[in-house]
Amino acid sequence: MFKYLVFVLFVAVSQADLLNQRENKGATLKPLSVCCDIPELGDPKHLANCSNPKLPGPCNDVQCVFEVSGFLIDVNTLNKKAYKNHLKQWEKNLTGWSVAVDKAITDCVDNDPRQHLNYPCKAYDVFTCTGIAMLKKCPAAAWKC
């Protein structure tokens, strides 16, 4: 009976260790962007407007959201005041994001970012820059990795 109990205990401990190894996978090569839980930046109404149907390509849907949101003067010119005001209003509704928003304004509104798609797309350039700036200054509470 004692041997049987030792065997059952051994199997239970082994299984527990295997389960623990599956849950704690260790290192990963996922894009760093998955580690920061950045809240949605777009107005749900504008996002819905540009999603039905979803426009193809890396630029068209972002371009649409920027146009209907008033963030562009024309396809190549950011409406800096409107986008800055949007980011500041977004910040007021969320705790802990002021440093990230300041970085986004400095890097992406006050400067002229270029993300180097095969064709120019101001909306994509600014939006991608904003995401990178937010990721660089991600608040600890939003960090998931």
Rank of each mutant, 00 (worst) to 15 (best):
M1I: 14
K3N: 06
Y4V: 14
Y4A: 09
V6M: 14
V6P: 01
V8N: 04
L9F: 15
F10Q: 03
V11H: 00
V11R: 03
A12D: 07
A12G: 09
V13W: 06
S14W: 12
S14G: 13
S14C: 13
Q15D: 08
A16L: 12
N20Q: 06
R22T: 06
R22M: 10
E23T: 15
E23M: 14
N24I: 13
K25G: 08
K25P: 01
G26I: 10
G26S: 02
G26W: 07
A27P: 09
T28E: 10
L29V: 14
L32R: 09
S33K: 11
V34F: 12
C35V: 00
C36P: 03
C36T: 04
I38T: 11
P39A: 08
E40S: 11
G42I: 00
D43F: 02
P44D: 12
K45R: 10
K45Q: 13
L47A: 13
L47P: 04
A48P: 01
A48D: 14
N49E: 13
C50T: 02
C50L: 03
S51W: 03
S51T: 11
N52F: 10
P58T: 09
P58L: 07
C59D: 08
C59S: 10
C59A: 10
N60M: 12
D61K: 09
D61Q: 14
V62I: 15
V62D: 02
C64V: 02
C64M: 04
V65I: 11
E67I: 10
V68A: 01
V68G: 02
S69T: 06
G70M: 03
F71M: 03
F71C: 01
L72D: 00
I73L: 08
I73M: 06
D74K: 03
D74L: 02
V75S: 11
V75M: 04
T77L: 05
K81Y: 01
Y83P: 01
K84W: 07
H86Q: 08
H86N: 03
H86A: 07
Q89C: 07
Q89N: 13
W90M: 08
W90G: 08
W90A: 09
E91Q: 15
K92D: 07
N93S: 12
N93F: 09
L94D: 01
L94I: 15
G96T: 06
G96K: 03
W97Y: 15
S98Y: 06
A100W: 03
A100I: 05
V101I: 15
D102T: 09
A104R: 01
D107H: 09
C108E: 02
D110Q: 10
D110S: 10
N111E: 13
R114G: 01
R114C: 04
Q115H: 14
H116N: 14
N118G: 15
Y119Q: 13
P120F: 15
C121H: 05
C121L: 09
C121F: 05
K122Y: 02
V126G: 00
F127I: 01
C129F: 02
T130Q: 05
G131E: 08
I132K: 07
I132T: 12
M134K: 04
M134D: 00
L135W: 01
K136T: 12
K136S: 12
K137H: 13
C138M: 05
C138Q: 00
C138P: 02
C138E: 00
C138T: 06
A141M: 08
A141C: 07
A142V: 05
C145W: 05
